[in-house]
């Protein structure tokens, strides 16, 4: 048995040294694979706030992931084709600058999360699962039928967006950007779950009556958590689109929403580093088994079934004796 803190430090070490090692050995593919894992980890860390700490199971976080992708895609598309985004009442141009895209993405995802949250958080349990799933599906069909931005074909962005002072097309530099964002998000999340808000959210999952009895507004707590959660996942979507230089409706697909939950379950629900470990293992397995068999999802299905039926607490629960903040 090892301490959760030591495992977290080990994972941080992996995140930093595997790409450096790959860089020295001239294996850009490994760096890209790690970048993919890091971006998925950001998405799942966002979801973990709602699902792990808040205890409401969103099966529709691909809605925010895809929205992030489309915000990036639309802004960059306007910029690369020299078409103005809005002409009236004020002139707005597209942009290829990452920091500006991120800020707009966060605002847009937070807005979408506020709208979806206001409607779906009226309900609980199974209703909530189905409704979030339905809203993500709505975004999916909307994106396929909106032909101005590629419809089912999606949008291709020829050159990766710019970050001041860096060459973002270089795999290791783009990885560094994503990794630093993940670390900032993890730091923020670590502080957040220990803050009065995080503690209240955690308590609200365990007992609604008690949290209301001490004077908190239950709905406000949940909605705030959902908005934060959606904003973080949205940001990861913009990074993912930048990684592939391509956005398509598949970023809204329900499978992706399911996979985000899978990352959290593999790593450990309600653990700060759970989603990171889950995403790393998932991407690694996908690469490993996917290279051997075209039908790797069958293996994933059986692994998942085994984790749900026999394992509790994911990898972290298996390796560490301390209880999660959860339970």
């Amino acid at each position: 048995m090892i301490k959760e803190r030591h495992l977290n430090i080990f994972v941080l070490g992996l995140l930093i040294f595997v790409p450096i090692f790959a860089y020295w050995n001239d294996q850009p593919f490994t760096i890209t694979l790690m970048t993919r894992a890091v971006i998925f980890a950001i998405a799942a860390v966002g979801l973990n706030l709602a699902l792990g700490t808040g205890g409401f199971i969103s099966f529709g976080h691909a809605a925010f992931f895809g929205l992030g992708g489309y915000v990036m895609g639309i802004l960059a598309w306007h910029s690369q084709n020299y078409v103005t985004l809005v002409e009236w009442p004020i002139l707005i141009e597209g942009t290829k600058s990452m920091p500006i895209i991120w800020i707009i993405t966060i605002a847009a995802s937070a807005l979408l999360a506020a709208i979806i949250g206001m409607i779906s958080l009226k309900t609980t349990g199974v209703y909530f699962i189905m409704i979030t799933l339905a809203f993500a599906q709505m975004m999916y069909y909307f994106s396929t039928s909106w032909s101005a931005y590629g419809g089912e074909d999606g949008l291709s962005i020829y050159v990766r967006n710019n970050f001041p002072g860096l060459n973002t097309l270089d795999p290791i530099q783009f990885f560094s950007i994503c990794c630093v964002i993940l670390l900032i998000v993890l730091f923020f999340m670590g502080r957040l779950i220990k803050s009065p808000f995080g503690l209240a959210l955690n308590a609200s999952r365990q007992s609604r009556q008690r949290i209301e009895a001490v004077g908190f507004d239950f709905h406000k707590l949940q909605l705030t958590a959902f908005i934060l959660s959606g904003a973080i996942t949205g940001l990861s979507g913009a990074l993912f689109a930048d990684l592939n230089r391509f956005v398509s409706p598949s970023m809204f697909s329900w499978q992706l929403s399911g996979e985000f939950i899978v990352f959290i379950i593999i790593g450990g629900v309600g653990r700060l580093f759970g989603p990171v470990i889950g995403a790393l293992i998932f991407v690694w397995l996908e690469h490993l088994i996917g290279g051997v068999s075209d039908y790797w999802h069958i293996f994933l299905g059986f692994i998942l079934l085994a984790i749900v039926l026999f394992g509790k607490g994911g990898i972290i629960g298996l390796l560490c004796q301390e209880d999660a903040q959860h339970e």
Binding site: G258, V262, H297, G301, L305
Partner: peptide, 19 residues
């Protein structure tokens, strides 16, 4: 709980579809 049900039946979808 519902989370386990969602995940296990999600796993079943993967197995059935790929199968």
């Amino acid at each position: 709980d519902h989370l386990d049900q969602v995940l296990a039946t999600f796993a079943l979808i993967l197995i059935f579809s790929e199968g």
